[in-house]
Each structure stands twice: as C-alpha cells, then as structure tokens.
Lab assay of single mutants.
Amino acid sequence: GATAVSEWTERKTADGKTYYYNNRTLESTWEKPQELK
C-alpha cells in the first residue's frame, strides 16, 4: 500500500539546520518523524 513517507520533506533553514516539513498537514518539526525512522 501507500506509505506516509512522501508527505515529509527534509529541508534546511537559512543557517543550515535540518528540519522536516509535511506537505499534507503543513506541519514542520525539528525531530525526525516516525514515518522516516
């Protein structure tokens, strides 16, 4: 079946920190989402 992984995108802030952005829920998080573990 379909997985939720594609909803999350790994992004970088202007100062180079990595965060994760969810295209479906429009939420962002510093922690790696469960779906990516």
Rank of each mutant, 00 (worst) to 15 (best):
E31D: 12
E27T: 06
G1S: 13
A2W: 05
S28W: 15
K12S: 09
N23V: 15
L36Y: 10
D15S: 09
K32M: 13
K32P: 09
G16P: 00
K12E: 08
E35S: 10
R24E: 09
T9E: 15
E35P: 05
T29A: 09
Y20A: 00
A4D: 13
T29H: 06
Q34F: 11
K32L: 09
T18C: 09
Y21A: 02
Y21G: 01
K32V: 13
K32A: 07
D15L: 06
W30T: 08
T3E: 12
Q34N: 13
Y20H: 00
T18E: 04
R11K: 13
Y21V: 08
L26H: 15
N22H: 03
Y19D: 02
G1V: 13
Y21F: 15
G16W: 01
T18L: 09
E31Q: 08
D15K: 04
E35H: 07
T9I: 14
E10I: 06
N22T: 00
P33Y: 02
T29I: 07
K32S: 05
S6G: 14
W30P: 05
A2L: 12
E7N: 08
S28V: 15
V5K: 12
G1M: 12
W8H: 01
A14D: 09
T25V: 01
A2G: 14
E7M: 04
A2Y: 08
D15H: 05
T29M: 08
S6T: 11
T18P: 05
N22A: 00
R11M: 15
L36M: 11
W30G: 04
W30E: 07
Y20K: 00
Y20V: 00
E7H: 07
N23D: 09
W30N: 06
K12V: 13
P33V: 03
E35F: 06
G16D: 04
G1C: 15
Y19V: 04
K32R: 12
Y19N: 02
E10N: 01
W30R: 04
V5A: 14
E31A: 07
T13N: 08
T25L: 03
E35T: 05
L36E: 08
T25P: 00
W8A: 01
D15I: 03
G16H: 04
T25S: 04
E7Y: 07
G1D: 13
Q34D: 15
Y21Q: 06
K12W: 08
R11N: 05
E35W: 05
E27D: 04
Y21T: 06
T18S: 08
Y19S: 02
E35I: 05
Y20S: 00
E31V: 10
P33A: 03
T3Y: 06
T9A: 08
L26A: 10
S6L: 11
T9K: 05
A14Y: 06
V5G: 11
T9S: 11
L26K: 15
A14S: 11
S28T: 15
S28F: 12
P33I: 02
L36H: 08
T13K: 02
T25H: 00
L36N: 09
G16V: 00
S28R: 11
E31T: 09
Y21C: 05
D15N: 08
K17P: 01
T29W: 05
K37T: 14
Q34L: 12
K37F: 14
E27N: 04
N22Y: 01
A4K: 11
Q34W: 10
D15E: 10
K37D: 14
L36T: 08
Y20W: 15
Y19E: 06
T29D: 03
T9G: 06
Q34G: 12
N23G: 09
S28D: 03
E35L: 07
Y21D: 03
E10V: 07
N22I: 00
E10W: 03
N23K: 10
E10F: 02
T9N: 07
T9V: 15
N22F: 00
A2K: 14
R11E: 07
T9M: 10
N22Q: 01
K17W: 05
L26Y: 12
V5M: 13
K32G: 03
A14Q: 11
E35N: 08
Y21I: 08
T18A: 05
P33N: 02
S28I: 15
W30K: 04
K12T: 12
L26R: 14
Y19R: 01
Y19I: 05
L36F: 12
G1H: 12
W8N: 01
Q34Y: 10
K32D: 06
S6M: 10
K37A: 14
R24H: 09
L26V: 03
Y20I: 00
L26P: 00
G1K: 11
P33T: 02
T29Y: 06
T18N: 06
N22M: 00
T3F: 07
K37R: 11
Y20R: 00
T18G: 03
T29N: 04
W30Q: 05
S28A: 10
E27L: 05
R11G: 07
G1T: 13
A2I: 14
T18Y: 06
G1R: 11
K17N: 08
E35V: 06
A2E: 14
T13D: 13
Y21R: 03
K12I: 13
N23T: 15
E7V: 04
T25A: 01
A14G: 08
T13I: 01
E10T: 05
